[in-house]
Simulated assay, not measured.
Amino acid sequence: MKTMKTLLLLAIVATMSSLSAKDREPGYDDGYEIGDLATDFSLKNVDGRMVSLSDYKEARGYLVIFTCNTCPYAQAYEDRIIALDQKYKKQGVPVIAINPNNPEKSPKDGFEAMKVRAEEKGFTFPYLLDDGQKIFPKYGAARTPHVFLLEKTKAGNEVKYIGAIDDNYQDEASVETRYVEDAVNAMLRGKEIRINTTKAIGCRIKI
Protein backbone atom coordinates (compact mmCIF):
# COMPACT_ATOMS: atom_id res chain seq x y z
CA MET A 1 0.00 0.00 0.00
CA LYS A 2 2.84 2.38 0.89
CA THR A 3 4.47 1.63 -2.47
CA MET A 4 1.24 2.42 -4.32
CA LYS A 5 0.90 5.73 -2.48
CA THR A 6 4.50 6.59 -3.32
CA LEU A 7 3.96 5.80 -7.00
CA LEU A 8 0.76 7.87 -7.05
CA LEU A 9 2.55 10.81 -5.44
CA LEU A 10 5.39 10.59 -7.97
CA ALA A 11 2.89 10.51 -10.83
CA ILE A 12 1.14 13.62 -9.51
CA VAL A 13 4.44 15.46 -9.11
CA ALA A 14 5.50 14.47 -12.63
CA THR A 15 2.20 15.71 -14.05
CA MET A 16 2.48 19.03 -12.22
CA SER A 17 6.06 19.45 -13.39
CA SER A 18 5.04 18.90 -17.00
CA LEU A 19 2.54 21.75 -16.81
CA SER A 20 3.79 25.31 -16.88
CA ALA A 21 2.22 27.97 -14.71
CA LYS A 22 2.00 30.07 -17.86
CA ASP A 23 -1.21 28.24 -18.74
CA ARG A 24 -0.52 25.30 -21.04
CA GLU A 25 -3.47 24.66 -23.32
CA PRO A 26 -4.09 22.75 -26.57
CA GLY A 27 -2.54 24.71 -29.39
CA TYR A 28 -0.30 26.68 -27.05
CA ASP A 29 2.14 24.01 -25.94
CA ASP A 30 5.32 25.64 -27.21
CA GLY A 31 6.95 28.70 -25.75
CA TYR A 32 9.44 29.96 -23.26
CA GLU A 33 10.23 28.78 -19.77
CA ILE A 34 12.02 30.70 -17.07
CA GLY A 35 15.69 31.09 -18.01
CA ASP A 36 15.14 30.81 -21.77
CA LEU A 37 16.44 33.51 -24.10
CA ALA A 38 13.59 35.28 -25.89
CA THR A 39 13.68 36.15 -29.56
CA ASP A 40 13.60 39.73 -30.71
CA PHE A 41 11.02 40.89 -33.24
CA SER A 42 10.23 43.73 -35.60
CA LEU A 43 6.54 44.65 -35.42
CA LYS A 44 4.53 47.67 -36.53
CA ASN A 45 3.54 50.16 -33.87
CA VAL A 46 0.33 52.18 -33.99
CA ASP A 47 2.39 55.18 -35.11
CA GLY A 48 3.55 53.24 -38.18
CA ARG A 49 7.12 52.66 -36.99
CA MET A 50 8.66 49.21 -36.77
CA VAL A 51 9.72 48.43 -33.20
CA SER A 52 12.26 45.89 -31.91
CA LEU A 53 13.64 45.18 -28.45
CA SER A 54 17.07 46.06 -29.81
CA ASP A 55 15.88 49.64 -30.35
CA TYR A 56 16.08 50.17 -26.59
CA LYS A 57 19.83 50.52 -26.21
CA GLU A 58 19.76 51.59 -22.55
CA ALA A 59 17.13 49.08 -21.40
CA ARG A 60 17.86 46.76 -18.51
CA GLY A 61 14.90 44.61 -19.42
CA TYR A 62 11.45 44.62 -20.95
CA LEU A 63 7.85 43.96 -19.98
CA VAL A 64 6.50 42.26 -23.09
CA ILE A 65 2.73 42.16 -22.59
CA PHE A 66 0.40 40.40 -25.00
CA THR A 67 -2.90 42.29 -24.83
CA CYS A 68 -5.69 43.49 -27.11
CA ASN A 69 -8.55 45.94 -27.60
CA THR A 70 -11.54 43.73 -26.97
CA CYS A 71 -10.93 41.36 -24.07
CA PRO A 72 -12.61 42.59 -20.85
CA TYR A 73 -9.63 41.36 -18.84
CA ALA A 74 -7.21 43.29 -21.05
CA GLN A 75 -9.39 46.40 -20.78
CA ALA A 76 -9.49 46.06 -16.99
CA TYR A 77 -5.69 46.07 -16.90
CA GLU A 78 -5.01 48.93 -19.34
CA ASP A 79 -4.57 51.61 -16.67
CA ARG A 80 -2.35 49.29 -14.64
CA ILE A 81 -0.21 48.59 -17.71
CA ILE A 82 0.17 52.33 -18.29
CA ALA A 83 1.19 52.71 -14.63
CA LEU A 84 3.76 49.91 -14.97
CA ASP A 85 5.29 51.63 -17.98
CA GLN A 86 5.40 55.00 -16.24
CA LYS A 87 7.00 53.47 -13.16
CA TYR A 88 9.58 51.20 -14.74
CA LYS A 89 10.45 52.80 -18.08
CA LYS A 90 12.56 55.39 -16.28
CA GLN A 91 14.31 52.52 -14.49
CA GLY A 92 15.16 50.86 -17.78
CA VAL A 93 12.28 48.39 -18.07
CA PRO A 94 9.73 49.67 -20.61
CA VAL A 95 6.42 48.06 -21.51
CA ILE A 96 6.18 46.66 -25.03
CA ALA A 97 2.54 45.74 -25.73
CA ILE A 98 1.69 43.31 -28.53
CA ASN A 99 -1.78 42.53 -29.90
CA PRO A 100 -1.67 38.85 -30.93
CA ASN A 101 -5.28 38.43 -32.06
CA ASN A 102 -6.21 37.50 -35.61
CA PRO A 103 -8.21 40.51 -36.91
CA GLU A 104 -10.15 38.23 -39.24
CA LYS A 105 -11.53 36.46 -36.17
CA SER A 106 -11.70 39.64 -34.08
CA PRO A 107 -12.18 42.65 -36.39
CA LYS A 108 -12.15 45.14 -33.51
CA ASP A 109 -8.54 44.08 -32.89
CA GLY A 110 -7.41 45.23 -36.32
CA PHE A 111 -4.63 47.77 -36.78
CA GLU A 112 -6.90 50.78 -37.33
CA ALA A 113 -8.88 49.93 -34.19
CA MET A 114 -5.61 49.57 -32.28
CA LYS A 115 -4.65 53.12 -33.24
CA VAL A 116 -7.97 54.42 -31.95
CA ARG A 117 -7.69 52.50 -28.68
CA ALA A 118 -4.12 53.65 -28.05
CA GLU A 119 -5.12 57.27 -28.55
CA GLU A 120 -8.27 57.00 -26.44
CA LYS A 121 -6.38 55.47 -23.51
CA GLY A 122 -3.24 57.55 -23.91
CA PHE A 123 -0.89 54.59 -24.14
CA THR A 124 2.63 55.62 -23.12
CA PHE A 125 4.19 52.52 -24.68
CA PRO A 126 4.39 50.90 -28.12
CA TYR A 127 1.30 48.95 -29.10
CA LEU A 128 2.38 46.49 -31.78
CA LEU A 129 0.47 44.23 -34.14
CA ASP A 130 1.62 40.61 -34.30
CA ASP A 131 0.95 40.54 -38.02
CA GLY A 132 0.62 36.92 -39.17
CA GLN A 133 0.69 35.78 -35.51
CA LYS A 134 4.34 34.78 -35.68
CA ILE A 135 5.55 36.08 -32.32
CA PHE A 136 3.04 35.03 -29.68
CA PRO A 137 3.54 31.27 -30.34
CA LYS A 138 7.30 31.67 -29.89
CA TYR A 139 6.72 33.23 -26.49
CA GLY A 140 3.98 30.78 -25.58
CA ALA A 141 1.38 33.44 -24.83
CA ALA A 142 -2.08 31.94 -24.41
CA ARG A 143 -4.31 34.71 -23.11
CA THR A 144 -4.70 38.47 -23.00
CA PRO A 145 -3.11 39.90 -20.99
CA HIS A 146 -0.05 37.65 -20.68
CA VAL A 147 3.20 39.09 -19.34
CA PHE A 148 6.80 38.10 -20.09
CA LEU A 149 9.48 39.92 -18.09
CA LEU A 150 12.82 39.81 -19.87
CA GLU A 151 16.20 40.80 -18.47
CA LYS A 152 18.82 42.05 -20.89
CA THR A 153 22.00 40.04 -20.38
CA LYS A 154 25.20 39.50 -22.35
CA ALA A 155 23.79 36.21 -23.57
CA GLY A 156 20.45 37.69 -24.64
CA ASN A 157 17.05 38.60 -23.26
CA GLU A 158 16.46 36.12 -20.47
CA VAL A 159 12.92 35.24 -19.41
CA LYS A 160 12.54 36.04 -15.71
CA TYR A 161 8.77 36.00 -15.13
CA ILE A 162 5.73 34.69 -17.02
CA GLY A 163 2.08 35.14 -16.16
CA ALA A 164 -0.44 37.56 -14.68
CA ILE A 165 0.01 41.19 -13.68
CA ASP A 166 -1.47 40.72 -10.21
CA ASP A 167 -4.00 38.63 -8.33
CA ASN A 168 -7.20 40.63 -8.89
CA TYR A 169 -8.22 41.83 -12.33
CA GLN A 170 -11.63 43.01 -11.11
CA ASP A 171 -10.54 45.52 -8.47
CA GLU A 172 -7.08 47.04 -8.25
CA ALA A 173 -7.79 48.27 -4.73
CA SER A 174 -8.23 44.65 -3.62
CA VAL A 175 -4.95 43.39 -5.10
CA GLU A 176 -2.88 41.52 -2.53
CA THR A 177 0.07 40.36 -4.65
CA ARG A 178 1.52 42.45 -7.48
CA TYR A 179 3.37 39.72 -9.34
CA VAL A 180 4.90 41.88 -12.05
CA GLU A 181 6.02 44.68 -9.73
CA ASP A 182 7.55 42.19 -7.31
CA ALA A 183 9.37 40.46 -10.18
CA VAL A 184 10.71 43.68 -11.72
CA ASN A 185 11.82 45.03 -8.34
CA ALA A 186 13.68 41.80 -7.56
CA MET A 187 15.30 41.71 -11.01
CA LEU A 188 16.51 45.30 -10.74
CA ARG A 189 18.03 44.55 -7.34
CA GLY A 190 19.71 41.39 -8.54
CA LYS A 191 17.58 39.31 -6.19
CA GLU A 192 15.81 36.01 -6.76
CA ILE A 193 12.24 36.41 -8.03
CA ARG A 194 10.15 34.62 -5.43
CA ILE A 195 7.16 33.94 -7.72
CA ASN A 196 8.38 33.66 -11.31
CA THR A 197 5.39 31.97 -12.95
CA THR A 198 1.65 32.43 -12.46
CA LYS A 199 -1.45 31.49 -14.41
CA ALA A 200 -2.43 34.15 -16.94
CA ILE A 201 -6.07 35.11 -16.49
CA GLY A 202 -7.80 36.49 -19.57
CA CYS A 203 -9.35 35.77 -22.96
CA ARG A 204 -7.96 33.10 -25.24
CA ILE A 205 -5.90 34.53 -28.09
CA LYS A 206 -7.96 34.45 -31.30
CA ILE A 207 -6.16 32.36 -33.93
Rank of each mutant, 00 (worst) to 15 (best):
V147H: 00
N102M: 08
T3L: 14
S20D: 12
Q133T: 06
K5S: 07
I193N: 08
A200M: 13
L84K: 05
A142T: 12
F111A: 05
A76V: 10
V175K: 06
K206I: 08
A183P: 06
L10F: 13
I96H: 01
I195L: 09
L37V: 09
A118R: 01
L128Y: 02
R143S: 07
I34G: 08
N69L: 04
T6I: 11
D85G: 10
F41W: 03
N157P: 00
G92M: 07
K87L: 14
I201Q: 15
L43P: 01
E119V: 01
E104Q: 12
A59K: 02
E58N: 15
D36W: 01
D131M: 11
K121L: 11
N69E: 08
I82N: 00
Q75K: 15
E104M: 10
G35L: 03
V95Q: 00
D29A: 12
K134H: 05
K138E: 14
D167K: 11
I193M: 10
E104K: 12
L10Q: 13
S17N: 14
A38M: 08
L37I: 12
A118G: 07
G92H: 01
I193H: 10
F136Y: 11
P100S: 11
G163V: 01
Y28Q: 11
N99S: 11
A141V: 07
T15P: 02
D40F: 10
Y127H: 10
K115Q: 14
S18L: 12
Y73I: 12
C203R: 02
K108L: 13
R24D: 14
L7K: 13
N102W: 08
S20Y: 04
V159P: 02
M1V: 05
Y169W: 15
G132I: 03
L9W: 11
L129F: 10
E158N: 10
D55T: 07
K108S: 14
D29R: 14
N185R: 14
A164Q: 14
S54H: 13
A113F: 09
D166P: 04
L19R: 11
N196P: 05
T39N: 14
M50G: 03
N45W: 10
M16S: 12
S54C: 11
S42W: 08
S52P: 05
P100K: 01
Y169I: 08
I195N: 12
P137D: 12
T124Y: 02
V95G: 00
I201M: 15
N157G: 00
V159D: 02
K87P: 00
E172C: 00
E172D: 13
D79I: 04
R60T: 10
T153M: 06
N99D: 13
D55W: 09
G61E: 02
L150H: 08
I98W: 00
A97S: 06
R117A: 05
E58Q: 15
V147N: 02
L129K: 06
D30H: 11
D23V: 08
V13I: 15
G132T: 06
H146Q: 12
L37T: 06
T39K: 15
V159Q: 04
E119P: 01
K5D: 08
K2F: 09
Y161S: 02
